[in-house]
Simulated assay, not measured.
Amino acid sequence: MAMWSRTSRDVDGESVIGSWRHAFINNGGSYYLTDLIVYADGLVDCWGLVTVEQFRDKLRSGWVATSLKEGAEASAHELASWTFKNVQSWVGADELYREVVDQIETLNGRLDSAGRCLEALDLFLAEQTDANRQRLAGAYDDIPEHRRRYILGDMDAKDWPLQVLITPLGKKLAGQSVTEERRETALAYFAEWRAGRDEAAERTPTVAPAVVVPGSFHHNGWPDPPGILGLHTQYPAPVRIGDVLYPTVEHAYWALRTTDRAVQDAVLAEPNTYRLSQIASGIPARPGWDASLQATIAHLLRAKFQQHEALALELLATGEGRIVFNAAGFGDTYAYNSRRHLIGRLLELVRAEQQAWRAGLLDLGALDQSETPNFVVYEE
């Protein structure tokens, strides 16, 4: 069974998550080992982005190859070349198509075919009617054939107990008729299986769902109240650092980045946060800026949420889940790749500090508007 690994692609500054496995392309009778990448937005990349329907056509035409010809030449780019001999293919075109569809469901946080089958199984075990048995059988058939044996997570019994449940009484399964006795044995198996699954679930720590801060900004004004958008570095929440009141965290970042007073004044006077990077990104950063970057951004975020109670409550409302910051943040190219992830982690840190402060475990009084430690904003 092929294992899928996670990846992503950038679309207009947004990260679209995906997953990939290996596949063969049949180009002119020669086979090329390449990456088959599936994305959450339903596009598939295998020597070019296509829709799921177009990918199915490529499978059926044999261009994405699931049947490998004996004696054909094959290669992996800059790695090796070989000739097929005694070829065995495990996954057919229709099965690979269904596997790709399952991956799209998984990437979007929805149940794949195996998950839907287990859901139908629970329904049948709770109410053993013919209608529920037929529903379970249909859900089982929807699973790519090469993945069915793994659905119960039992490498000894595999999917046999499930097949016994969905096979009508008197019909043969692997040469033996399904009898009431075999059916009862399968039901007893599932009683133990469910108990083991429930026990494992109790031992597994609950993982809070991720909270996504959207990447789109509001050109026509921010909503009031801002909700999750208040976590943006560009949200208009003035932040006082020392003697200077910055219109946003974004303004503070770009003004503090440089020691050039004219640039700092231009940053403070610019109402459009999209233009701040145009003003300041080409100006040399102050000495030690990169080394102190994480601490600086953390300080700015602490000040923002300590100085704006409503926004602090929005941050606390994210609970304990990971914060996925899909906005670019600080406008430069690097932000699209790395800095937004840094902002998400630092927002989680500030959230924890707010929780500790409210529990009386941490003193954040120094972040009061009148007592905030000063940065060197101007240097003569």
Rank of each mutant, 00 (worst) to 15 (best):
I143H: 03
D45W: 00
V376W: 07
E371D: 12
L256M: 12
L33M: 01
S67A: 12
T318F: 05
Q103C: 04
S61T: 04
Q128G: 10
A188T: 14
C117E: 03
W254S: 07
P226S: 06
V377L: 14
L245C: 10
S15I: 04
G227R: 00
Y97E: 04
T259Q: 13
A359E: 14
D154M: 11
W90T: 09
Q176K: 15
V101Q: 06
S8E: 09
D112E: 05
L107C: 02
A195D: 14
A298Q: 07
I25H: 12
L111R: 12
S89I: 01
R116C: 09
R110P: 06
I297G: 03
I241Q: 11
K85F: 13
Q163H: 06
R116P: 00
R182K: 13
T206Q: 09
L316G: 03
P205G: 05
S61M: 01
I323M: 02
F84R: 09
A312F: 00
D10E: 09
Y140Q: 06
G242K: 11
R286E: 06
R197H: 02
R203P: 04
G175K: 10
N132K: 11
W289G: 00
G344L: 01
L300Y: 02
T372S: 13
G48L: 05
W254D: 04
I143G: 00
E105F: 10
S216M: 13
L136D: 09
L165E: 09
A310D: 15
V213H: 03
A72C: 02
E181L: 05
N108G: 01
F217I: 06
N374E: 11
S177G: 10
W160P: 02
G221V: 03
W4H: 07
D224H: 07
Q369A: 15
N272D: 15
L349K: 05
L152I: 06
G319K: 11
T179I: 01
S75R: 14
G242C: 10
D122E: 15
V101M: 04
N26E: 08
D198E: 15
D332E: 15
S113L: 08
G230V: 00
A195R: 15
N337A: 14
Q134K: 15
H341L: 13
S61E: 11
A201V: 10
G215L: 03
S75A: 15
R286F: 12
C117Y: 01
Q176S: 15
N220M: 04
D332L: 01
N86M: 09
K304E: 07
D10H: 12
G62R: 09
R340T: 05
I323R: 02
H251F: 12
Y246R: 08
E309A: 12
A312E: 06
A137R: 10
S75T: 13
T129C: 02
T167G: 02
L231Q: 01
